[in-house]
Each structure stands twice: as C-alpha cells, then as structure tokens.
Simulated assay, not measured.
Amino acid sequence: MRLTDRTLNWLPNPLAALLRKHRETVKFVIVGGLCYVVSLVFNYALRLTVLGAKPVTALTIANIIATVVSYFLNREWSFRTRGGRRRHHEMLLYTVVNGIGVAVNSAPLWIAQYTFGLHYPNVSHAVEEISDFVFGMIIGVALAMVFRLWAYRVWVFPHDDVRPAPKRYEVPTQAAVPAPVATDSTSA
C-alpha cells in the first residue's frame, strides 16, 4: 500500500474520500509545504547572514532554490501521470511558470517594502520583520501557490494519464475472515 493511502486511512472516511478524489492537489500542497519550509529556511539563513539589508533578494534566491526542489517532487510525485511534452520543453515551461511564480511571490513584499515603506527606519525592526513575514511568506506564497497549481495543469503538465501510474492497491474495507478448517470427522 502506498504512503498516501496509508496516511489517508488515518482520517475519517468522508474526509479521506474527498482527499482521494483530489489526490493530485493534495500531493501538490504537500510538496508546496515542504518547499515552503525550504524557502523559509533559506530566506532566513540569507537574511540573517549575507543579505540582511536586501530582504527581497534573499526571498527571491530562497524561492529559486525551493523551485528546483519543487520541480523534481512535482514531476515525479504530484503530477507523475501528467505530461505530454518532451522533457526539455516541459522543464523550460516549468522554469518560465516558476519565474513568474517567484515574481508573484516577491511582489507583495516589494510593495510592503517600497510602496508602503514598511522597513527600518520608517518602522521598528519588529514591525519590519512581521511585515516581511506576512507579505513575503504568507501572502506571497499563497498567491504564487494558486498561480502555480493552475499553470502546471494548463501549461507544464497539460495532459492527464500520459505516463502510467504505479499499480494502486485497494484499501480493504474489512479484514479477511479465515476459511473454516476442514476436519475429518471419521478419525477421532
């Protein structure tokens, strides 16, 4: 039984059935969550070391790193049955879509920093950090996630059931009842 099915078996049946119906989106969100952590770690690693004065640059670099991780996970897990394009064409489209996604992700932080002026010395360091997190890591990520899911389905992996999926194992509804053991009634 696959990891996804084993995990969904822990959930209540109505919720598990809904999530199985939208399996591709669920996997996309899981990959997105993992890449969010990658982006978060690299963003703050860069901001707290070499790019302290350049938060938009730090976020952009972190998103590029997370995008590379995302491609391989999405291609081989989330959208593994989708495709329809040659690998180099698919990768080029993925790169273009994610370039736009990085811009969509960075735009709210750029607006907060340079349009609203939510940076030091205009505001305190604490307000700047909260603003950067909300605009860059929450609003930006949410907007970019919705854009990427749509764009992957439409442009990058446009055709469903192109690549064969591994065989699915059905989840048993009841435990198997052992067959009665035949006994010889003549020998006693």
Rank of each mutant, 00 (worst) to 15 (best):
M1V: 10
P180Y: 09
E24M: 05
R148G: 04
R47Q: 15
E76K: 12
V29K: 08
F133P: 00
F157T: 04
V171S: 11
L118Y: 08
K54H: 15
A107C: 10
N105V: 07
R148M: 13
V38S: 08
P158E: 07
L59V: 04
V26D: 02
T95L: 10
R2Q: 07
V38D: 02
S106Y: 02
R47Y: 15
R85C: 05
H159Q: 15
E170C: 01
W77H: 09
R47T: 09
R75D: 12
W155K: 06
T81P: 01
G52R: 02
R85N: 08
A103P: 02
I100P: 01
W150R: 07
A45N: 00
A151C: 05
R20A: 08
L34N: 03
T173M: 14
V96Q: 06
S39W: 03
A17Y: 08
P55H: 07
P166N: 09
A66V: 12
V102D: 03
L15M: 08
V123A: 12
T57H: 13
V38Y: 06
W10P: 00
S106I: 02
G117Q: 05
Y152R: 03
A126N: 09
V127S: 14
Y169P: 00
R153S: 04
G32N: 12
E76W: 12
F133E: 00
E170H: 14
Q113L: 13
I130R: 11
P55T: 06
Q174P: 02
W150H: 05
L73A: 15
I61H: 04
P121I: 05
A126Q: 15
D161T: 00
S187R: 13
A142R: 06
N122M: 11
I100A: 08
N13W: 09
H125D: 15
R163D: 13
L109G: 01
Y44S: 07
W150C: 09
V104A: 02
I64K: 01
R75P: 00
Y114E: 15
S131G: 10
V97S: 05
F135C: 10
A142D: 00
A66Y: 11
L92G: 06
V38K: 05
S131L: 01
L93P: 01
A16M: 08
N105H: 09
F79Y: 10
V102M: 07
V141Q: 10
E24W: 03
P14I: 11
V56Q: 10
Y44N: 14
T173N: 14
R75V: 07
Y94D: 02
M137F: 03
A107S: 13
R75Q: 11
G99N: 07
F28H: 09
A17E: 13
S185I: 10
A175G: 11
Y71A: 05
V162S: 01
G32F: 11
T95F: 14
V156C: 04
L143P: 05
D132C: 02
A17R: 13
A144S: 15
R2D: 14
G99V: 14
R163P: 00
T4D: 08
W155T: 04
V154L: 13
K54P: 00
V38E: 01
L51T: 07
A103D: 04
R6E: 02
H89N: 00
Q174A: 12
S131V: 05
V102A: 05
S185Q: 12
A62C: 07
V56N: 14
V141K: 08
Y36S: 13
G99E: 10
G83R: 09
V171I: 14
Q113N: 14
